[in-house]
Design a protein around this nucleic acid. Structure first.
Length: 270
DNA sequence: AATACTGTTCGCGA
DNA sequence: CTCGCGAACAGTAT
């Protein structure tokens, strides 16, 4: 589920609710998904809510940070104290604040929460590439990382070590916008194509943000409502439907076991 | 009923 | 080092 726009949307919503609030208690229902000792952060206040790629980071007053990764099916639901009639069979962690509680729901049990101090966080964040909405994501950087790799561009875009934040949906959408075939070898992209892709990546992510993310199966915002970028897909899940630009039939292929959608005419291979 | 999907990432082995 | 594959898990579609 959540790629950059979904995590960023969650961050913004939560910021309004829990910035400055003190963590009173943490209930853990799925031990494997809370990888640290919750006592490390009980009694601390939320200093800032940050994000890099798909990682959500709650910075706390004791120089520690709570990291959240939603993986495929994670939800963060904010329940103010007055809303007590909510319960979910897939709740994994509940964090209690003065004004309400934050429920980490996650049917598939891939996601996790963990606590890292500032040093540890720094090390962890260095392992993933620049966030496409940050200043570090430059055209020069893209040209540099693209020059070496023999991989297919779609697979490359999913590699969080190179760029952090793109997932299966937004990478297909970005390649369509840039008019680049998903199976093109990265090193073969021309300067012009890289420039187009650079713009397209930022464009689709901002668009995703504008519509508050993509709600296919699991993703909802902390207030329980859906995003609606799925209503604006150009290629994703549109197999057999007409391309909005040229009316060709959108195709679906598998790359490294994952679905890719593209327009065979707008995104020519050669 | 059995199999194949699904928005992610990690470890393994080539 | 780099890359593709399968696994981690649960639910839903075919």
């Amino acid at each position: 589920m959540p790629e950059l726009p979904e995590v960023e949307t969650i961050r913004k919503y939560l910021k309004k609710e829990i910035l400055g609030m003190k963590i009173k208690k943490i209930d853990i229902f799925s031990k494997k998904q809370f990888l640290s000792n919750p006592k490390e952060i009980i009694g601390e206040k939320i200093l800032a809510l940050k994000r890099k790629g798909k990682l959500l980071i709650l910075s706390l007053t004791n120089r520690k940070n709570l990291l959240v990764h939603l993986k495929l099916s994670g939800q963060l639901i904010w329940l103010p104290n007055q809303r007590i009639n909510y319960s979910s069979p897939t709740k994994r962690v509940i964090i209690y604040f003065d004004g309400g509680k934050l429920v980490f729901n996650e049917p598939r049990k891939f996601g996790w929460l963990r606590v890292l101090n500032n040093e540890g966080l720094k090390i962890e964040l260095k392992k993933i590439g620049p966030d496409p909405l940050s200043k570090k994501f430059t055209l020069d950087y893209l040209e540099k990382i693209f020059s070496k790799s023999k991989r297919e561009i779609k697979n490359f875009l999913l590699d969080q070590k190179k760029i952090s934040g793109l997932g299966n949906i937004y990478s297909s959408e970005a390649l369509f916008l840039a008019k680049i075939h998903p199976e093109r070898k990265v090193f073969s992209l021309t300067k012009r194509e890289i420039k187009r892709l650079y713009g397209a990546i930022k464009m689709v992510l901002k668009d995703g943000l504008k519509y508050e993310g993509t709600s296919l199966r699991y993703y909802i915002k902390p207030n329980g409502t859906k995003g609606f970028y799925q209503e604006h897909f150009r290629v994703y899940q549109r197999e057999g439907k007409n391309c909005y630009l040229c009316s060709s039939k959108i195709q679906k292929i598998k790359q490294s076991g994952r679905s890719t959608f593209f327009c065979p005419l707008c995104q020519k291979k050669f």
